[in-house]
Simulated assay, not measured.
Amino acid sequence: MKYIVFILFTVMTNAAAQLMLKYGMMSMGPLSFAGVNPLVKVLQIVFSPWIFLGLATFVISMASHLYVLSKVELSFAYPFLSLAYVAVAVFAYFVFREDLNAYRIAGIAFICVGTVLIAQSGRSHDEASPVAPQSVQTSELTR
């Protein structure tokens, strides 16, 4: 549980990146590739300020996630990323006025309950068995 701050940082940067990408795409208006070189259009999208910032935030989120993976079990860390769905839904409701109906709220509640259950079971690599994982040779996989 001592790495929960890094896990939550990963979740929040992931959610923030989604919100930036959405805002960036909304600010671009309707997409049309008519009469435009598709490569040029893709570059315009990628290098628009909010899209670029969102992509950069994803890189930060991924770097944080890689750090987390070096410290805790994957089966513990990965389910926490589902909390990004919760954060995105809540922020999209307030920022973009997106619908947050009963079904979505129920789904969010299930995600939260599941994440709490997973959090109760977690342990870091430091707390796991003191034996380091053994490397597996390719020839051993084919047996």
Rank of each mutant, 00 (worst) to 15 (best):
L8E: 07
F9W: 15
T10V: 00
T10P: 02
M12L: 15
T13C: 10
A16F: 12
A16G: 12
A16Q: 11
A16P: 09
A17K: 00
A17I: 02
A17D: 04
Q18F: 02
Q18C: 05
L19D: 06
M20Q: 06
L21C: 01
L21P: 01
K22Q: 10
K22H: 06
Y23N: 08
Y23L: 08
Y23I: 07
S27V: 09
M28N: 02
G29S: 05
P30R: 13
P30C: 09
P30S: 15
L31I: 11
S32C: 09
S32Y: 02
F33D: 01
F33W: 07
A34D: 07
A34G: 09
G35T: 00
V36P: 00
V36L: 08
V40M: 07
K41Y: 04
Q44L: 02
Q44C: 00
I45K: 00
F47G: 00
F47I: 03
S48P: 01
P49Y: 04
W50H: 13
I51Q: 08
I51A: 04
F52D: 01
G54Q: 01
A56F: 10
A56E: 05
S61H: 00
M62A: 09
A63R: 06
A63W: 08
S64A: 13
L66A: 15
L66R: 12
V68N: 10
L69G: 06
S70P: 04
K71G: 04
K71S: 03
V72L: 07
L74W: 08
S75V: 02
F76C: 03
F76K: 11
A77I: 02
A77Q: 10
Y78V: 04
Y78I: 03
P79Q: 09
L83F: 11
L83G: 04
V88Q: 09
V90F: 12
V90R: 01
V90T: 03
V90L: 15
A92E: 11
R97K: 11
L100E: 03
L100N: 03
N101P: 02
A102F: 11
Y103L: 14
R104I: 10
A106I: 14
G107K: 11
I108L: 14
A109N: 10
A109F: 13
F110A: 11
F110Q: 09
I111E: 12
I111L: 13
C112G: 10
C112P: 05
V113R: 05
G114N: 14
T115L: 11
V116P: 05
I118P: 12
I118N: 14
A119N: 14
A119Y: 14
G122E: 04
G122H: 07
R123D: 03
R123Y: 14
S124P: 05
S124W: 07
S124R: 11
H125Q: 10
H125N: 07
E127T: 13
S129N: 15
V131Y: 13
A132N: 13
Q134T: 14
S135N: 06
S135K: 08
T138Q: 15
